[in-house]
Computed example of a mutant assay.
Amino acid sequence: MLLPQPQKRRLQRVTLQPHQVEQTLEVNSAIALTSEQRHYLCNVLRLEIGAEFIALDRQGGWWLAKLSSEADNVQIIDKLENNSELDTQITLGVAMPKGSNIESVIRQSTELGVRQIVPLFSDRTIIKSGTEIGNQKRDRWQRIAEEAAELSLRTYVPEINAPQSFKTWLGDRSSASAQILKYICVTHPEATHLLPSLQSAYDALPAGEHLAQIMVATGCEGGWTAREEEIAIASGFIPVSLGDRVLSAVTAPVVALSIVSAFLDTK
């Protein structure tokens, strides 16, 4: 992997907000800091004028930036290379576990390389479809992903979608493509394990082509209902097992993504 020099990697990383990267960044670009970023850099980290840090542009770009003479602004001084991302985009559809456990799923999934997380209402989620999830909670989920991306040297910040029903999510992904693999994790003993299923799909790809996207759906406490499994299969999802042990709603997505990322890292 091509990474920034070690001394650059140790610099603090700060994820820029969408409005800060509306225009394409380049060397010598000036960026106005948000009040939160200014507080973090100047008051928490106690960086002085001229201090350097790494700015992540949310789209894979790493930029070396420094605090200008006015603490409200920073200047881009160099473009850094960092190839820590998986070659295949991973989307996780996760039936929301009880309590605040979705936050753990978001944090660990981000560390494992996921590019998109879709919280889902399922037949067995405690929070039922149609329940309004406030912007404050959704903003918190996105901040958790940003923090995890910074700490794990990600170049992309995963997109946390608004919660939606499992059926709606499946309907938006009914198209079939050899380059898109879709899996639903189940507990049936006859289901093929995720790892050999990935290998079989990879071996079946036409010469010169690569996987564009892998989609994984994991259930909440109690798993998916038979009805949900049926409509998922009808939408092109392949039922797969994560092993002989029954996993919790928090552990299952982490295990699934660990298998996927390890598989992709070896290809």
Rank of each mutant, 00 (worst) to 15 (best):
Q59W: 10
N135M: 12
A148T: 08
V118P: 00
R154Q: 10
G61R: 03
S152N: 06
Q89Y: 08
L80I: 09
N82L: 11
N73V: 12
D72F: 07
L120N: 04
M96G: 02
N161M: 15
E159C: 09
I117Q: 02
S104F: 12
I144D: 07
S174E: 14
V105H: 01
S100P: 02
N161I: 09
I76N: 01
S84T: 14
N135K: 14
K167D: 09
K66G: 13
I133F: 10
S68R: 13
K79A: 15
I127P: 03
I106H: 00
N83T: 08
L92S: 03
F166A: 02
M96I: 10
V114M: 02
R138T: 13
G171A: 09
A148Q: 08
K128M: 04
V105R: 03
W63T: 11
K167A: 12
Q142F: 07
T155P: 03
A145Q: 10
R143S: 12
S165K: 00
A95E: 04
L80P: 05
S100G: 09
S129R: 12
D172L: 14
E132D: 14
I144M: 07
S104Q: 14
G99P: 11
E132T: 11
E150H: 08
L64H: 02
E81M: 10
N82R: 05
R107C: 09
N73G: 05
Q75G: 06
E111Y: 04
R140Y: 13
S109F: 05
I90Y: 05
F166N: 00
G171W: 06
S122R: 01
I144Y: 09
Q108M: 14
L86K: 02
I90P: 00
E85S: 06
S84Q: 13
G134T: 14
V114R: 01
I77S: 12
A71V: 15
R115H: 13
L80W: 06
L67I: 15
E159H: 14
S69P: 05
A145G: 08
L120S: 02
P119Q: 05
V114T: 07
Q142P: 09
E159M: 10
G99R: 06
K137C: 07
L151C: 12
D172M: 12
R58W: 09
D72I: 06
N83D: 13
I54W: 07
N101A: 13
G134F: 10
L92P: 03
I126G: 00
A55E: 06
S104V: 10
L112H: 07
Q108S: 14
P119Y: 05
A71L: 14
W63K: 04
T88D: 05
Q164P: 03
I127S: 05
K98V: 02
Q164A: 11
D57P: 06
